[in-house]
Design a protein around this nucleic acid. Structure first.
Length: 215
DNA sequence: ACGGAGATCTTCT
DNA sequence: GAAGATCTCCGTT
């Protein structure tokens, strides 16, 4: 789909995040993930997300609160950044009311501003592979442990999300979440809690093996 | 284009 | 001690 990038942006407020993770994941499609690096704006359009909810066996929060997953219980609208596979940082937005552990994983963006910085951060890779995955996205935007538990509703920490033109349902696809452990039981294993923009070339490469169905 | 394996280390059992 | 909300490289088609 083509995307209008001339819209006037507004930073998403806490109320936006204080909702069911599935609704937030759906509505984050098309929003702009923005990072400030060396006084330069680096951003991308969110094109793929996943929801993780309370009681969800695939969620980090499922077996209770630990030092790592504590942000999931905290104020909606903060970040939850964690290290996976010993080497990759993944960015989540914490959602739902405080004490209801839930988050939305940002799985892919379409590069928008600061392409020179993104190219530098993803040196040697073709543009198509700059941000088409959750760890590729954090590498492109210099996101790591320093961005854990920052306030996404404020510019003060150099990482926030802005609203843009709403995406119609006809341009949204859903499917099962990617990369879940093989011991994750049904219905969580195949529940369609991943959302992406139809035909967008920047969705995560690893997800392209999975099924593709419109809402 | 696709598939398999290694990388690498924190977190929790 | 094992398992990850993954990426990259290197093989083969």
């Amino acid at each position: 789909m083509s995307i209008d990038t001339t819209t006037t942006m507004a930073i998403l407020k806490r109320d936006f995040y204080n909702r069911n993770a599935c609704q937030v994941a759906r509505d984050l499609l098309g929003a702009h993930l923005v990072r400030f690096i060396n006084d330069q704006r680096v951003s991308g359009i969110i094109v793929e997300t996943e929801a993780y909810r309370d009681g969800d066996a695939a969620s980090h929060a499922y077996r209770g609160r630990t030092s790592r997953n504590t942000p999931m219980w905290q104020t909606p609208g903060i970040s939850y950044v964690y290290l996976t596979y010993g080497m990759h940082w993944l960015l989540n937005a914490v959602v739902e009311p405080e004490n209801a552990p839930a988050a939305v994983l940002i799985r892919a963006i379409q590069p928008l501003d600061g392409l020179d910085i993104i190219a530098e951060n993803r040196y040697g890779r073709p543009p198509r592979e700059w941000t088409n995955g959750p760890a590729r996205t954090t590498m492109a935007l210099n996101i790591n442990a320093a961005q854990n538990q920052v306030d996404l509703t404020s510019q003060s920490d150099g990482l926030w999300i802005e609203s843009a033109d709403p995406i119609p349902d006809s341009d949204v696809c859903t499917g099962p979440r990617i990369g879940l452990g093989k011991n994750v039981p049904e219905p969580w294993r195949s529940i369609p809690w991943r959302w992406w923009l139809k035909d967008n070339p920047h969705v995560s490469h690893i997800s392209k093996k999975s099924n593709v169905e419109p809402i």
